[in-house]
Computed example of a mutant assay.
Amino acid sequence: MEHMDFANPYFGVFVMFVLTFGAFIAGTSLSRFASHKLARKDTEKLKTTLYECGPEVTKQPNTISVQFYLMALLFILFDVEIIFMFPWAVNFQVLGWFGFVEMILFILLLTIGFIYAWKKGALEWHSIK
C-alpha cells in the first residue's frame, strides 16, 4: 500500500472539499430531521392557503395578445443575428473579400427575413378590444 503524499499542494483543497461536503450533508440532514419533528401536523386548511392583501382574487381571462410574444421572439431573433456582426467588424481586414461577401449574404438573408415578417403582419401591433 502506498503512503499518502501530504506534500501535494492540492491536498489542502481536497481536505476542505471533503469537510465542506460533509458539513453540507450533516446540516441538510439535521435541518430536515428537526423540521419533521418540530412541525405541527394539525394545521387548518385556511392557514395553508395563500394570503394577499385586498379583495378576493378572481380568475380572469387571458388578455395578453399573442402579438406580444411574437414581437418579443422577433426582437430576440434579430438581436442575436445582429450580434454576429460584431466579430466581423473587429476582424474586417483579416477576413478580406471573403468576409465581406459572406457578411453581405448574411445581411441579405437578414433583410429577407425582416421583409417576410413585415409582409406577414408580424410587426403590426393590434389593440385588444
Rank of each mutant, 00 (worst) to 15 (best):
M85T: 07
M103H: 03
T111I: 06
L95A: 02
V94S: 12
G96P: 01
I76W: 03
E102W: 10
L109D: 01
V80D: 05
D79C: 11
N91I: 06
E102M: 15
G113S: 12
P87L: 11
Q93K: 14
I104G: 00
W97F: 10
G96K: 01
M85D: 02
M103P: 03
L110G: 04
I107T: 09
I83V: 01
F114D: 02
F106K: 12
F86H: 01
L110F: 08
F100S: 05
L110T: 07
F92H: 13
A89K: 10
L110Y: 05
L105W: 01
V80N: 11
I115V: 13
F114V: 02
F78M: 11
G113P: 00
W97P: 03
G99S: 08
F98T: 08
G96V: 00
I104T: 09
E81C: 14
E81V: 13
L108F: 03
L105R: 09
F98W: 08
V94W: 01
W88R: 13
V90R: 00
F100Q: 04
F106A: 12
V80M: 15
A89V: 10
Y116R: 15
W97L: 14
V101I: 14
I83F: 06
P87W: 02
I82Q: 06
G99A: 10
V90Q: 02
L95K: 05
F86R: 11
L74G: 10
F75W: 06
I83L: 15
F106V: 11
L110D: 04
G96E: 00
I76P: 03
W88V: 14
L109V: 09
F98Y: 08
A72F: 05
L73Q: 09
F86G: 02
M103D: 02
I112H: 06
M103S: 01
I82Y: 03
I107Q: 01
M85H: 07
L105I: 10
I104C: 05
G96F: 11
G99V: 08
G96W: 00
D79W: 08
M85C: 09
Y116W: 05
L77P: 04
I82K: 13
F98G: 15
V80F: 07
A72H: 07
L108D: 04
A89I: 14
